Amino acid sequence: MATPRPFDAVLCDFDGVIRFHDQTELAELERAAGLAEGATTKVVFAPEVGLPALLGQITVEQWQDAAEAALARQVPPERARALVTAFMKTPTRVDEDVLGLLRRAQAHLPVVLVTNATLDLEDDLAWLGLAHFADEVVSSARVGATKPSLRIYEIAAERAGVPAHRCLFVDDRMENVEAARALGMTAVLFTGVPDLEAALTPLLG
């Protein structure tokens, strides 16, 4: 008798699990501006600046303008512009090991991306060659809800076509993992490829 599957869909975060950003240049610019490393990111994702972009209420260009204005309270406007531009153009890479595991999982069940993202997500996926990778993509900017709001998890399960308690959810932020668990999902905090390997072992063997 075959062993029952432990779950019927994989819901996976994008940034911090599949895509990673190299902020070396940004950190150098922050030091030159007398700012602590991470100061730009903190401003860019402050709720009053970043949330409208992640909810699809403003464009990335409008988000950049808002971030520059907010950062200009700490540094001269030209430095604020350079810092935010560096943030927006941060070099990225895709973890091929993670993609390989997810592609193996797709042979058995749907894989759905669930991500807090801007209206540019589709362009980003296409640029990375991932436009047709996931079975479904649930972007906060398209559905009007961000993680850890329970609604975005409910939408993802609906798109996968399975009940929430039959979903495996993978994310690199604990608050997002805890929200998934609150809906009855099997949820894993991603700190590296071994976490995903361990989560998928019951499925892949």
Rank of each mutant, 00 (worst) to 15 (best):
M1S: 13
P4S: 00
R5V: 12
F7I: 07
D8T: 12
A9G: 05
F14H: 10
V17C: 08
R19E: 15
R19C: 14
F20R: 05
H21N: 12
H21Q: 14
H21R: 14
D22R: 08
E25W: 13
E28P: 05
E28R: 14
E28M: 14
L29I: 09
G34F: 09
G38K: 11
A39C: 10
A39T: 12
K42V: 13
K42W: 03
P47K: 13
E48M: 08
V49K: 01
L55K: 11
G56Y: 03
Q57N: 12
V60R: 15
V60S: 12
A67R: 06
A69L: 09
A69T: 13
A72T: 02
R73M: 05
V75Y: 00
E78T: 13
E78I: 06
R81P: 04
L83I: 05
V84N: 03
T85E: 14
M88P: 04
T92A: 14
R93P: 06
V94I: 15
V94N: 09
D95G: 12
V98A: 02
V98N: 03
R104Y: 08
R104V: 01
Q106S: 08
A107I: 03
H108C: 11
H108M: 11
T118L: 00
A126V: 10
L130Y: 00
L130F: 09
L130P: 02
A131W: 08
A131V: 05
H132C: 05
V137T: 12
S139F: 00
V143C: 12
A145M: 03
A145N: 02
A145H: 06
A145R: 10
P148Y: 07
L150C: 07
A156W: 00
A156G: 02
A157S: 14
E158I: 06
R159E: 07
A160W: 01
C167D: 04
L168H: 10
N176H: 15
A179K: 07
A180R: 01
A182N: 09
A182G: 15
A182C: 11
T186R: 13
L189F: 04
G192I: 04
P194Q: 01
D195S: 10
L200R: 10
L203P: 01
L204Q: 03
L204M: 07
L204W: 10
G205F: 06
G205Q: 12
